[in-house]
Design a protein around this nucleic acid. Structure first.
Lengths: 236, 236
DNA sequence: GTCCGTATAAAACACTCGTTTGATCAAGGC
DNA sequence: GCCTTGATCAAACGAGTGTTTTATACGGAC
């Protein structure tokens, strides 16, 4: 019944400015960032319900109560973490989208658009101490989730930029009905998320021949495949 | 320290023969099957770590100890459940694969193969009291998982039939290097699993215009898209 | 009748969970 | 000096975890 005494400290990034760089070997990463890093790793590896706050705070080297102190709850921690990691991806996407243009000596528009959409998702999302695949796996997890909270988090983070690309691709394929573009865009999301998740299933099928993981290799395989799919004639 | 006193009852299907059909309105579904149904629903909706045995057994209307009595552990319950639901899918796949053949008046071989691979996954996997999307979501969850146990379960259930299709598709695309076929097969798995998961993301982007869910509609959109992708010229 | 193997039931076991509570410590203002 | 403020801490809260144990009921075999 008691009212929350402290209504959650206001995040990290601004506080992070406190530690001046170069004042010694012990730079002391702020508590908030250490929690975010550890939580990203563990959530990605074992899911939200699969990791406890005690494990997260232990790995981050902070006190158990710090999560509720800074974020308010476990769910809010996930939300803050996801939005923070998604932001650079969507920003880079929009930047690359603005660079897409038809012209002599350039690839076709569709190829440019897919590359601009996919590359940031594959190459960004990493932070200090976290390998790139981590956020991809977390994203895949949330994408497969059916609970409203998780879907809201993903939609909130990615819908605007995604919709911009959907419109641009639709414009680049004028002969294709909008509904068809949406279906194929959905299929693209599937390949992207499944590849980012690094399920390892293709390795298990081919006994390790095919290793999706290196960004450039994956993109070089993915973009032509998807472009051909987008350009497939409509079947009536 | 104590040794397991009872080494797990030997499953359900054989026991299910005990209840003769038509001996009254109360047909009494066996305990094992009720557990499997409830567990499938709940695991699919909230993940393995997100549901407790108490909730499963309550929904199934059986005693808490029944899970450990019949399956041995929560993990073994998941494994039994997954293998049992996957079996009809792989069986139907292999049956359809055997029906694929080139000939006048038939679709091209690649279209036949993809249809044979995808349709059982979309249309089967449902059981008494469980809607079709349930197992698809569970499959998507396990596919995204990184822990060895879950990957082993998926591989064990689906690798043989999947490998058969990989070989058949490879044979149907003789001009394509094997490695390229494997990449594209991996992409196909992504679209399939993501669509089966019914993430609802495309609905959220298009504000409900595009509804993947009806089997025939999804297949009619998916097969041409994927076939075009498979037939894309190799770049490099 | 007893005996036996199977099935269900209730209770307990030893933990772990997310969250909250006070206490403590270090600065900064005045 | 005191007071305040933000941060960290150990400890406890109540509820929930998977699993095991003990006990009880049912049903044929003999």
């Amino acid at each position: 019944m008691s009212v929350k005494r402290i209504e959650t400290r206001k995040m990290g990034s601004d506080l992070a400015a406190m530690d001046r760089p170069g004042e010694g070997p012990g730079v002391q990463i702020p508590t908030v960032d250490r929690i975010l890093s550890a939580a990203a790793r563990l959530f990605a590896a074992r899911g939200m319900a699969g990791v406890g706050l005690r494990e997260i705070t232990a790995e981050a080297g902070v006190n158990l109560a710090a999560v509720n102190y800074y974020f308010g709850s476990k769910e809010k921690l996930l939300e803050a973490l996801f939005l923070r990691r998604a932001q650079p991806i969507t920003a880079e996407r929009m930047r690359l989208l603005a660079c897409c243009a038809e012209g002599p000596g350039r690839p076709p528009m569709l190829e440019q658009l897919l590359e601009a959409f996919l590359r940031p998702a594959f190459s960004l999302g990493l932070e200090a101490g976290v390998d790139g695949a981590t956020f991809g796996r977390l994203r895949a997890r949330l994408s497969v989730e059916s609970e409203e909270l998780y879907r809201r988090i993903v939609a909130q983070a990615f819908n605007p930029s995604t919709r911009a690309f959907l419109d641009a691709i639709d414009a680049a394929l004028p002969e294709l009905p909008r509904a068809e573009v949406e279906w194929r865009f959905h299929f693209m999301l599937g390949t992207m998320i499944y590849t980012m998740a690094g399920s390892g299933r293709i390795q298990s099928i081919t006994e390790g021949q095919c290793r999706p993981g290196e960004v450039d290799m994956a993109l070089a395989k993915l973009v032509p495949f998807l472009c051909a799919g987008f350009r497939a004639p409509v079947t009536g």
